[in-house]
Design a protein around this nucleic acid. Structure first.
Lengths: 250, 250
DNA sequence: GCAGTCTCGATCAAACTCGTTCACGAATTT
DNA sequence: AAATTCGTGAACGAGTTTGATCGAGACTGC
C-alpha cells in the first residue's frame, strides 16, 4: 500500500470512529507505531485531522456532531435551523437525521405539538423531557462518536413508519446537485429515511454548497426542498431548481 | 480511549445530567477518581464546565440541585443486581428490561465485553460512553415517566434479535409463581423480550415476592432463573422451584 | 461545635507516548 | 554499477499520563 493511500485510510478510519489511538491504527493498517506517528504529524500539518496525545481526532469537516467550540458558523446554521422549523405545522410528524444540523432544528421545536422521530441521540437528549412532543426513537447500534443509531435495526424501524417531513444534514452538495456524505455507514440509514418521508428537506450552509463527500446519499430529484444561505453558490442552486427542488434562503 | 475523548465525554455527560460527581464520572468512564479530578481541573480552566466541591456542573444551567448526585444506594437491591451481572460471561449478549432494577444491573456491567440491548433510556445514558460494550437500542415511542421505549416499533425490533440473557424486572410475583406487572402497556414488550431471549432471569427483591400487579407477564415455567433475597417468601420460592425455575439467593 | 465522612491537591512510581536517531532495503538517479 | 533518495522499523531518552496513597481541609448529622 502506498503511503498516501494509508494516510487516506487513517482519515477515513477517524471519520468512522471519531478518533483513533496510535496503537490501534498501527494494528489496523499493519505498520509500526512510528509510521503512524509520522503520518499523523503530516496529516495534522495538512489540517486533515487533529493530533492529540495518544492518537488523533477527526476534524469536523462534514456534519460531524459535537466539536464543541465551533461558534464560527453557529449563527448562520441556527438561522437555517429556525427557518426549517417554521416549515412544520403543529400536528405533523418530523424525522430528524443525525448530526448537529438536525439537533439545531430540534432546539427550535420545543413546546410544539409534534411527533418527532430520530436516530440522533443528541435530539433524544434535547427533547426527552418536552411533554408536548411525541418522541419516537429508531432502534439500532449505538455509534458513540456520532451519537447516533445505525444498522439494520434502524433501517427496519424506518420501514415501519412514515412521516410528513425529513430534515437531512450533509457533508456537502456537489455542483451537479448530488447530496454526499463523509461516511459510508450512514448512507443506508439516510436512504431509508428518504423513503419513509413525504417531503425531504436538505439543510446546508454555504460551506456545504458546493461541497464534497465520499458517499452518494441521493440525487437532487429526490429532494423536495433545500434550506440554505443567500450567499451560497448560485450555480449549485440553479442546478437544484432545475431538478425541481424548491430552494429556500434563510 | 484517548484523554481528549474522555474529556469531551465528561462535558457531554454533564450537559445530559446538569451535574456529575467525581465518583460517578470515574465509574462511568472507567478511570480513577484522580484522573477525573485532573480532567475537571483542566476543563474548568478551559471554561467548559464549573468545578464544584464533589464534582462539576454544566456551564449553562448550573442551578441543578447537586444533592442527588450523592444519593445513597439501596444496598439490598444492589446485591441482587450484582449477583445477576455475575451470571453473564464476557462475549455474551444481554437484554435489559425497563425499570430501576435493570439499570442497577447495567451499573455492574461497566468495563465488561458484552453486547447490551435495551429499551431503557436510563441504561442508554449509563452505558453510552462505555467503549467495551456494544450497545443496541430498541426502537419505540418514548414513555417519559418511565424513561422507556414502548409500542409496536419496540416489539418489531425485538423480533429482529436474539440474546443470551434477559434480565426482567417486575411489580410482583404472585404466590402461584406468575409474574405480574403494574401497567398493561409494557406487557407486549416484555413478552417480546421473553421470546427473544435464550435464558430469562427475573430479578425480585423481597417486597415483590409475593406481590401483585394488574397484568400478567408470564407463567413461572417461562423463566430460567430467579434472583431474589434469602428472606423472601419461601412458599413462593418453592412454587417456582417446582415449576423448574432455578432460584438464586443474593 | 464536634466527630465522622468525604473530597481535595500533592507526591511518587509505573506505564505509556513522543520525537529523534540510526540502520536497512527498495526504488531511482547518476 | 555506484550513489542517492525515500519510506520504514527498532531503539532510546525525554516527557506525559495514570492510579495509589496521604495529610489537610470541607462538609454533614447530631
Amino acid at each position: 500500500m502506498l503511503p498516501k493511500q494509508r494516510q487516506d485510510q487513517i482519515v477515513r478510519a477517524l471519520r468512522a470512529d471519531g478518533a483513533g489511538g496510535v496503537k490501534v491504527l498501527a494494528r489496523k493498517l499493519g505498520v509500526s507505531e512510528a509510521t503512524i506517528r509520522r503520518d499523523l504529524e503530516q496529516l495534522h500539518a495538512e489540517g486533515r485531522l487533529t493530533r492529540v496525545y495518544g492518537g488523533a481526532l477527526a476534524v469536523d469537516g462534514g456534519d460531524e456532531p459535537f466539536a464543541d467550540v465551533n461558534a464560527v458558523h453557529a449563527e448562520e446554521k441556527d438561522r437555517i435551523a429556525r427557518r426549517a422549523a417554521e416549515l412544520v405545522t403543529d400536528g405533523e410528524s418530523v424525522l430528524l437525521d443525525i448530526g448537529t444540523t438536525a439537533l439545531r432544528v430540534a432546539q427550535h421545536l420545543h413546546g410544539r405539538s409534534l411527533t418527532v422521530v430520530t436516530s440522533n441521540l443528541a435530539v433524544l437528549e434535547e427533547l426527552q423531557y418536552d411533554e408536548q412532543i411525541e418522541l419516537i426513537v429508531l432502534g439500532g447500534f449505538v455509534r458513540r462518536s456520532y451519537r447516533s443509531l445505525v444498522g439494520y435495526l434502524t433501517e427496519e424501524s424506518l420501514r415501519q413508519i412514515h412521516v410528513d417531513w425529513l430534515f437531512l444534514g450533509t457533508s456537502g452538495v456537489r455542483p451537479d446537485g448530488r447530496v454526499m456524505d463523509s461516511t459510508m455507514i450512514e448512507v443506508p440509514v439516510k436512504r431509508a429515511m428518504i423513503n419513509a418521508a413525504e417531503r425531504v428537506v436538505l439543510l446546508a450552509d454555504r460551506t456545504k454548497f458546493p461541497g464534497h463527500g465520499v458517499a452518494r446519499v441521493c440525487e437532487p430529484g429526490e429532494l423536495s426542498m433545500v434550506v440554505t444561505e443567500p450567499d451560497s453558490d448560485p450555480a449549485t442552486r440553479a442546478q437544484l431548481t432545475e431538478a425541481g427542488v424548491e430552494v429556500v434562503l434563510a
